[in-house]
Design a protein around this nucleic acid. Structure first.
Length: 509
RNA sequence: ACCCUCGUAGCUCAAUGGAUAGAGCAACGGCCUUCUAAGCCGUAGGUUGGGCGUUCGAAUCGCCCCGAGGGUGCCA
């Protein structure tokens, strides 16, 4: 954890609270670099002197326009490797406190999940895994809109399918409607088919997500809000707080006072409460279940975020962090051709179909390779290809190669002798790659950007493959134990990293 | 019309205001008698859409223009 230690030392000297540690360009001397002296107008010489007091630092020098470049001591490498090899699964784990609730996917149960839902799930779940690794208590929640117009339409569409009639013009069609209808044939229809159908489809969703390695701690149904009169209560409390007004027969929330572009209707002139009112009630209820919140939403909802944030502020919840993480939609391609994604016609490619075709490993890795801000091009052919053009195999292959070395050496990572740990310059670059893991993990969580992990794992895999190519492990005499320890460390970081992405680390390929 | 996101190598994309803008794929040329060649090494590829500004320093921040996608309901 030398990177974190050095970062904290730099923070102390410069007084900055967001110190960035980077790597100097390859042509320059030094293993780590910081611009903190420039940014904080600290005398770089003073920073160098302070850093050189650390046992992890061999030397520190000023370079360029005021960067401080740090050269690590041999002891830093040895200690880091011992730390990793002693308990690879625990390396990078943090002791952060508090609870985080991650809401993700939350699809209406009116049709199958598609690839876009998968992206939201992959981002949310991986972020949740990373938060948990840093020590937070994490809750994954699924919010289900199981009431309202769309659900009524679903019920109506099922009824039509059962009675052999054509569905309403704006109703749902497609093979899955027939499947649902078949399941419900002959069951009681006292309250229509919508609620039974919704539960059935919700079950499918949770099953697909499970095979996508996403499981939930809670499923919150919108219908519960009505049952417990929570929407009414929420609206009443806004009204009592003088945050609403009546206009043209409707009740409006003064969201524009809290940063929204306009006020929003809570109760229509028809007397019905809006979907927004339900969502407020849901967020109010949810706010009691954790200290911090992350909503993972498709970018098509971005216009909706100011009003929810406005409600959050208006309800006095501003001290609890609510992050709405938006992700751009997915362009599905097959051999370079865009795959049609029309929704109501039932022609879209479902998440299940993608999983059947490329497997959960490739699907998760691909969806996490890009920044959430960028649209994702998902090429089914590439994801399915079992060769070097597929990046997920590159990372997994490094893990399999290591397992193979241990098998060949008839040793196992758990039985190595830490006292034999004595890395030299050949090992340094690879240890340095491993040593970046704790810092990178914090970066992923703090920037809510799990895609950094995919890039990092490719870097580690590259460092490993280079090492493997030039350094012989088995039969290297007195060096062998150190090298096995290093491989054990690489194996640990790769499998931890893949685990955080929800991707398997195969022992053989 | 307004708002949001994006525009970086032939393609897909990285880069939390830093140093000579980096990877992968595709192309070309090398490396298996040795722990998995799903690997490694090398070559080539750029006016970061265009312009003006802010500053020690801009792909990143501001303004204008061009282009792509999304959003703007008393729908859910």
């Amino acid at each position: 954890m030398y990177e974190l230690k050095i970062r904290d030392a730099v923070a102390e000297v410069t007084g900055l609270d967001d110190v960035k540690i980077g790597f100097p360009p390859p042509s320059m001397r030094g293993d780590l670099s910081t611009n903190a002296a420039m940014v904080s107008s600290t005398d770089p010489g003073r920073l160098c002197a302070a850093l050189e007091k650390l046992e992890e630092v061999e030397s520190a020098e000023t370079a360029g326009p005021g960067f401080v470049n740090i050269t690590l001591s041999p002891g830093a490498y040895a200690e880091e490797l011992k730390l990793i090899a002693a308990d690879p699964g625990k390396y990078g784990a943090g002791d952060r406190r508090g609870s985080i609730l991650v809401e993700m996917v939350s699809s209406n149960p009116t049709g199958p999940l598609h690839i876009g839902h998968g992206r939201g799930g992959a981002i949310g779940d991986s972020l949740a895994r990373m938060c948990a690794k840093l020590g937070y208590r994490v809750l994954r929640e699924y919010y289900v809109n199981d009431t309202g117009r769309q659900m009524n339409l679903l019920g109506e569409s099922i009824r039509c399918a059962l009675e052999g009639r054509t569905p309403p013009a704006d109703g749902y069609r497609g093979e899955y409607i027939k499947s649902v209808a078949d399941e419900l044939r002959g069951s009681s229809v006292d309250s229509g088919y919508s609620s039974r159908a919704g539960e059935l489809i919700l079950g499918w969703h949770l099953d697909v997500l499970k095979s996508f390695r996403i499981t939930y701690d809670s499923v919150f149904r919108e219908s519960r809000l009505a049952e417990e009169a929570l929407v009414k209560k929420t609206v009443e409390s806004l009204r009592a707080g003088n945050l609403t007004y009546e206009k043209e027969g409707a009740l409006w929330f003064r969201s524009s006072r809290f940063g929204d572009t306009q006020d929003r209707v809570l109760r229509k002139s028809s007397g019905d409460l809006t979907y927004f009112a339900s969502d407020c009630a849901y967020h109010l209820d949810k706010s009691r279940r954790a200290e911090r919140f992350i909503n993972v939403w498709g970018a098509d909802h971005h216009g909706y975020t100011p009003r929810i944030k406005a409600f959050w502020e208006a309800s006095g919840l501003g001290e609890k962090e609510l992050d709405i993480l938006l992700y751009q939609l997915v362009d599905l391609k097959r051999e370079g051709e865009k795959v049609s994604m029309s929704t109501r016609q039932g022609e879209f490619v479902t998440l299940q179909e993608v999983l059947d075709e490329v497997g959960a490993d490739a699907a998760r890795f691909f969806m996490l390779m890009r920044s959430s801000d960028a649209p994702l091009e998902f090429d089914l052919e590439l994801a399915r290809r079992q060769n070097s053009s597929n990046p997920v195999y590159y990372v997994q292959y490094s893990h399999a190669r290591i397992c193979s070395v241990f098998a060949k050496a008839s040793r196992s990572p758990g039985e190595l002798d830490l006292k034999e740990c004595d890395p030299g310059p050949e090992e340094y670059p690879l240890i340095k790659a491993l040593g970046h893991f704790p810092y990178l993990l914090e970066k992923c969580v703090d920037l809510k950007a799990p895609h950094f992990m995919t890039e990092y794992l490719r870097d580690v895999a590259t460092a490993f493959h280079k090492y493997y190519d030039t350094v012989r492990v088995i039969g290297s005499g007195s060096r062998q134990e150190t090298r096995l320890l290093l491989l054990s460390g690489v194996k640990g970081v790769i499998s931890s990293g893949l685990e955080l992405l929800g991707v398997s680390a195969p022992e053989r390929m």
